[in-house]
Design a protein around this nucleic acid. Structure first.
Lengths: 206, 206
DNA sequence: TATAAATCTCGACTGCATTCGACTTTCTAC
DNA sequence: GTAGAAAGTCGAATGCAGTCGAGATTTATA
């Protein structure tokens, strides 16, 4: 019985996350109070704060749970033989659909992942890394196939596609595009990025 | 004296914004309470809510004030003769410096502009449009000079650059890059976008 | 000018995140 | 085993955003 304490802590933390997964999904983040969360986890209100610094941090744990699952799934779903664009579309559209399934969740998630507060910077590191690995593998393979320039750091390649993805998600949240327009807009942007925004060399010499 | 009421309302609203500009700049958004704001504006707490729906909306008014000034300035600063990349750098770096002058302000601003809540969607419309006009004029001129492809909707061209800008800002907020790296990273991304991510036609045919 | 309707103003009130510090349980060292 | 230290638990207290409704002021109608 030496590990009683640590074991118990792990269990309590799990209980909080479990309650969060349940309550956030059911009532949304804002509508779920810490007190409810505590009650559902069978502990006192104050105790939550020995496990998480604030409500947002509980949300991060919730996200990890959600996203690890999704992104593992996406890693399998992508066809390594398809074109970069098709692979990118599979991954980013899959992510989009999941992230925006609950629009409130998606908004908060994007806000926090892209522009985290100082104290939260490291909260997404783990999930982020898995996501990055997935992206990097896609773009590295594309470089090997000579589908993408080899003189660009794969991190930058991933950045380009990710940036365009963010833009599309933002456009949807801002009401500039409708849900049905997301896919075609994203594909068009990806194609343009691959081809380049400058007139092609052939045309330029004319 | 027919317009007393409306005149007074305008004056009160101005007083609130003025108090906000002062207090937000001095103590930051989070640390400034509505009550303080009301006191500084010489009105009751509840009255604030006849002028603004919530605290965030006061922040929007504050933003408009800040940004209108900056973006007008930027519009003048950009040299219409320079390359698209140079012009883009001037505009986006100028924006970056201003938006992140107060890091807390910038974070909140980016979060709200990119992923607004349903009720806030229209709050930035006015400022947004001016910003967009500025960007569009840059990219349209570049198309005319044949520096950028004419078969891409200028809106999409602006989107590409804006997307990369967002990525860089996000990278800075996430601590993935330092302040000094912002400019070179942005420039590199812009160059890559213009040239395209695919190997050049010339190389491809080899 | 008198009265009713509309609008505005206020601060007490509500609800919730977060803090605090008194109390309890577990660990450590003898 | 036991005393004292360390860590964990709790809900009452705090602070703040946002609501409410009673009263004040302005406008519209006559």
């Amino acid at each position: 019985m030496t590990i009683t304490r640590e074991e118990k802590k792990r269990k309590t933390k799990r209980a909080i996350i479990k309650a969060a997964i349940h309550l956030f999904a059911e009532k949304g983040f804002d509508k779920t109070s810490i007190e409810e969360l505590a009650r559902a986890a069978g502990i006192g209100k104050g105790t939550i704060y020995t496990y998480f610094q604030n409500k947002a941090e509980i949300f991060y744990a919730f996200c990890e749970d959600q996203l690890e699952f999704v992104r593992n799934e996406l890693a399998e779903k992508t066809d390594p033989g398809a074109s970069v664009i098709d692979q990118s579309m599979t991954v980013f559209m899959g992510d989009f659909i999941h992230v925006t399934r609950n629009s409130e969740f998606g908004r908060f998630f994007m806000q926090q992942v892209l522009f985290p507060e100082e104290r939260d910077k490291n909260n997404f590191a783990e999930v982020d890394n898995k996501w990055l690995e997935l992206l990097l593998s896609i773009y590295q393979r594309a470089q090997e196939r000579n589908e993408l320039r080899k003189d660009i750091d794969p991190l930058y390649l991933a950045g380009h596609f990710y940036a365009l993805y963010i833009l599309v998600v933002s456009s949807w949240y801002s009401g500039r595009i409708e849900r049905e327009e997301v896919e075609p807009a994203m594909r068009l942007l990806f194609e343009q990025a691959v081809e380049g925004l400058a007139p092609s060399a052939a045309l330029q010499t004319v």
